[in-house]
Design a protein around this nucleic acid. Sequence first.
RNA 1: UCCGACGUCGUCUAAAGGCAGGACAAGGGACUUUGAAUCCCUGAAUCAUGGUUCGAAUCCAUGCGCCGGAACCA
Length: 572
Amino acid sequence: MSERSTTPDSDSPATNFVRELVEADVKAGKARGRVGTRFPPEPNGYLHIGHAKSICLNFGLAQKFGGTCNLRLDDTNPLAESEEYVRSIIEDVHWLGFDFGERLYFASDYFLQIYEWAEQLVRQGKAYVDDRGLEEIRSSRGNFYAVGQESPYRSRSIEENLDLLKRMRAGEFGDGERVLRAKIDMSSANQNMRDPVMYRIRHATHHRTGDTWCLYPMYDWAHGLCDAIENITHSVCTLEFEDHRPLYDWFLLTLGIEGDKKPQQIEFARLNLTYTVLSKRRLQQLVEEKLVSSWDDPRMPTLAGMRRRGFTPESIRKFCDQIGVSKREGTVEVQLLEFIQREDLNQRCRRAMGVLRPLKVTIENWPSDRTEYVELLNHPEYPERGTRRVPFSGTLFVEQDDFREVAPPKWYRLTPGQEVRLRGACLVTCKSVRKDADGKVVELRCEYDPNSWGGQAPDGRRVKGTLHWVSAAHAVDAEVRLYDRLFSTEYPMAGPEGTNWRNAVNQNSLEICPDAKLEASLASAPVLDRLQLERLGYFCVDRETTPERVVLNRTLELKDAWAKLEKKLGCP
RNA sequence: UCCGACGUCGUCUAAAGGCAGGACAAGGGACUUUGAAUCCCUGAAUCAUGGUUCGAAUCCAUGCGCCGGAACCA
């Protein structure tokens, strides 16, 4: 009978309480079974992974029940909002993979209708103009423990209220001189019901309506009305609006919008992620205070940042499916996000070789003018994705990290006298080391086994280490940017009293390798192209790439069993 | 001191009165021309107390804990 999915062992997402509520409404025939949702961001910042959760929920609901999901820009506060943000929001929703077709709306499109409803409320004796200033109104609202006091203007006549409201709209009053308030209950335990402000006066230019209005509706006043105008059936929002639901309902019901016409507000727990902050305000501070380079800095949890970092929209959606939707506030470990990205990138990305911090290797018994080509699989699990020819010569670069003059236990890589495999090419042994005046190793002198071409030991001897390499003469110069978590603590906002969250910013979240060397096939990789550099991680071509120099962002490292082992051996 | 929510492995999430399951993380092993991937294994939870019931994570009561709420922000 029930269609609840139980324990999905596939990637089919489990159901959630919102979906179940909607499903019950559909079955009960509410709104004749139609489902309408919306994603309503305020254009005052870039969208982040937390918004992705909401986008997936809302668009997912529409998809699941054959309904529609609108993108609505909630632009009721001209002081905070801008067109740049509108542009980025539209781009990011599209990139995430959701199509809202023609259903792109703006709260500001409804300003006239909302105003007319305000007049209706005044005529019903349910709203009044308060002449007092912000401080007076605030202090008369009471607090958690004390009820509020009624405004002396609360009992004005309907005629006077109507006149005043019209004059407010006409611009007769200055900012903050008067507000329109709903007449509800100053003694309500829910402070949202203590005659909330509906309209404030702001002589400000709106990015869409210009100077048409000097009256701007508050969120509580506008939101439910916008939902009603758009025939939203289920208005999904985050938990902090739970206390606002009685007000949401009051406005609608008082205006006579009820039954199937009245949208239902449902609240769910917003996303929190470890090692991350997810609040537009904090993200904006990171940008403004130059703690990151921009809203799309690859360390940012914004969709723009994650896109530039190399994350795929598919795997962000998958992440949103996997974390579920509930009313329990919690914090998802960022490792889950990383796991899902790696899982996706592993399947998707072609392999290539590149060296981040080059160390010169000379193969002494290799003829100096000889170049061979090795044919390497583009993807080890999918031979059908083809191969590429990679040039090999007697002067190579390997990773500085792959050489230790004194080898620790279990070291399978280069160290004097130890044989290693150069991926796809041959077995080599380090014979000697050259150092500069400071004692820094600047070159490895090696010999290769001519019978090992291809990388196979001729006598079946075990060679455990396999290293990536790039032929010096054929290498492409690149700058590679290595990113780490933006914050060095799991809960950046949870420091002891008085701690500044900015102190939790990871000072080493960006490391630049300016002299990286890539295999020749990467010379003309397009911006946003993703690939795996074997043994190093997943990378994405940055938009700052020029014809002279490739710039790569490291999306994520590969899992590193050696780093783990070394750590374990190093600190017992 | 008020109002509204929420308490299930370390984390997220299932179980709608009937076997507490999955994923990530952690630990161990196999395999390996990426110390990757893949495969196998292990440990790990119902906030507490009382009640209802043949049977409670689930219903009831009380307590405790945690989150949100006192913008002319959203």
